[in-house]
Design a protein around this nucleic acid. Structure first.
Length: 316
DNA sequence: GACCCGTCTCTGGAAACGAT
DNA sequence: ATCGTTTCCAGAGACGGGTC
């Protein structure tokens, strides 16, 4: 079906709180957006200080709004490429569910992983939601929905490969203050073993792992280390916490261009917390910064999201 | 049920800081 | 002065509890 959706229609989809119940809903929105790009031909701008990143600028109808920076190594722009890649991705998730951690040993799957397609699909779907959000009148509504929908996407993917996974709010007792409890909202609680028991939703059980999902780490990285520290201390046993980020770049004005980009990952604090507070049980980026690959200290702590799905999640 | 209020959480650009 | 790094911040939304 060729899209006749307008950007206003896609904005309404992103705002719709009853939408995005299944992974295919992300496909439908993404496909419609890529078709819309062909129709309305927004200006495509390459960032002068990092040419891997591009922006789209919408026309007067959409008040000349500019999208977030998009990594052209990951963002799939061609609709037919995206369609084919998405179908392969869904079938790959089926294989992962069927073969579990042994999937990585199959040569066909190893071949598939080389294409980095898992990260590309997740990146494209989520950044399309972000790009639609960037055209909203209300930036705070966009921010909230973009965050909610990324958390939702990661949850759907983890469930799709056979894990129990839900958002959960737990009540954490405060020592020496029996009248007070800390209400702690957890993005994801997942486990290999079947359904989550409804009566035990206010606790963390053995075998359950906490996942914190954020589009960028920025200054919010601090809280994730604190979560691991505090929950381990207050619950009296080791609590496993992993972090999942989409990327860590933002637009930044330069002297000669408004289309610069900056990293927002706090390398020094990340390493400081890791060695002095507690090591997280996994840190994953869909779009890692170059220094996360180049720098030995970071490389040993951080992987990409694809690696979580095919390897680490089965071993945690 | 409807409504309000307090709490907790969401993000990305702006602002502030720091190194050169 | 410029630019990379770190911090600040606004307002949205989910949710629980209280009141009617």
């Amino acid at each position: 079906m060729m899209s006749s959706a307008t950007l206003f229609d896609l904005q309404a989809s992103v705002k719709d709180k009853s939408a995005f119940r299944q992974i295919e809903d992300y496909y439908a929105l993404s496909y419609a957006f890529l078709n819309l790009l062909i129709e309305i031909q927004p200006t495509r701008i390459v960032s002068p200080n990092d040419p891997r990143y591009i922006f789209y600028q919408f026309d007067k109808t959409y008040r000349h709004k500019i999208t977030r920076p998009l990594n052209s190594d990951l963002f799939i722009e061609a609709t037919d490429d995206f369609q084919i890649a998405f179908e392969r991705f869904i079938s790959f998730l089926g294989d992962l569910k069927r073969f579990g951690q042994t999937a990585i040993n199959k040569s066909s799957i190893q071949e598939y992983l080389k294409s980095n397609e898992v990260n590309k699909i997740v990146y494209t779907c989520q950044q399309i939601i972000g790009s639609i959000g960037d055209s909203f009148e209300n930036p705070n509504q966009s921010r909230k929905r973009v965050g909610q929908l990324f958390e939702n996407l990661v949850k759907l993917l983890i469930k799709e490969i056979g894990f129990a996974c839900e958002s959960r709010t737990i009540s954490v007792p405060i020592p020496d203050s029996p009248d007070y409890m800390m209400s702690y909202e957890l993005d994801l609680v997942f486990s290999k073993n079947g359904a989550i028991i409804a009566s035990e939703h206010e606790l963390i059980h053995p075998g359950e792992i906490i996942g914190s999902v954020k589009t960028t780490s920025k200054d919010r990285i601090d809280k994730i280390f604190l979560d691991k520290f505090l929950l381990t201390k207050l619950l009296g046993r080791e609590i496993k916490v992993i972090a999942i980020f989409l990327h860590d770049v933002q637009r930044a004005r330069r002297a000669n261009s408004i289309f610069g980009i900056n990293s927002t990952f706090k390398t020094n604090h990340f390493l400081g917390y890791t060695v002095a507070l507690n090591r997280l049980d996994g840190v994953y980026f869909v779009d890692p910064r170059p220094n996360m690959v180049a720098d030995f200290s970071l490389r040993s702590e951080i992987d990409d999201f694809q690696y979580l799905l095919v390897n680490d999640i089965w071993r945690l």
